[in-house]
């Protein structure tokens, strides 16, 4: 007897052109057998589609991050298949959860161990501003100790919100000037955090 079918009774025909995301080609000039473009655009394209995140998960935002990494939301679609727990190899520090004042030097040390170029995403109210923990023991936002590129609001944010924040990081990474990290302004920013 045939088993009653409840799911996928109208399966979609697979269409490779719909299902595989291909990055847009950067501007440039091309002809027979060659393509010339800006070096910066190529580097940006490569970097933004292969961001290795370092999850620094301390509380409930970390649970949302697990959902984000799992099959349903699947951060790997954006080139972040490899979640690395070694700061030396990572591009993006994702701070998720309450950072107590005692934890602050550790966050900073992890940030310092990352190689340039590095980016930081603060996920959730606690990492961004201390959140509900307006107390003597909690750091009131990680931007007091390290520079933050993207803040994701929410308590905790839904995985979609984090994806949105991640896409914003990708946008920043893709558009970043190759000389930004050597600029005086960047050095000033680092000095304001007492780095170097």
């Amino acid at each position: 007897m045939a088993r009653p079918v409840r799911f996928n009774i109208h399966p979609k025909e697979t269409n490779i052109h719909d299902n595989i995301a291909i990055a847009d080609m950067p501007e440039g000039s091309q002809g027979g057998g060659y393509f010339a473009t800006n070096f910066e655009k190529i580097v940006g394209l490569a970097r933004k589609n292969s961001i290795w995140p370092l999850p620094f998960a301390t509380s409930c935002c970390g649970i949302e991050f697990m959902a984000l990494m799992a099959s349903h939301y699947d951060l790997a679609r954006f080139g972040s298949e490899r979640v690395s727990f070694s700061p030396r190899q990572c591009d993006l520090l994702m701070v998720m959860g309450t950072i107590a004042k005692k934890m602050a030097p550790i966050v900073k040390q992890v940030y310092l161990q990352m190689a340039e170029p590095r980016w930081v995403l603060a996920m959730g109210a606690c990492a961004s501003s201390g959140g509900i923990f307006d107390s003597y023991a909690v750091l009131q936002g990680i931007d007091q100790i390290i520079p933050v590129d993207v803040y994701v609001p929410g308590c905790p944010p839904r995985p979609e919100a984090v994806l949105d924040g991640f896409i914003k990081v990708q946008d920043l990474v893709g558009k970043e000037n190759l000389r930004r990290r050597n600029s005086e302004r960047y050095k000033e920013l680092m000095n304001s955090y007492g780095i170097q």
Partner: peptide
């Protein structure tokens, strides 16, 4: 830390918060 936070003369809320 240079004070004893559960004594009542100190405010519970973090004083460095600006937002």
């Amino acid at each position: 830390m240079d004070y004893f936070p559960m004594r009542k003369e100190y405010p519970l809320e973090e004083q460095t918060r600006v937002d």
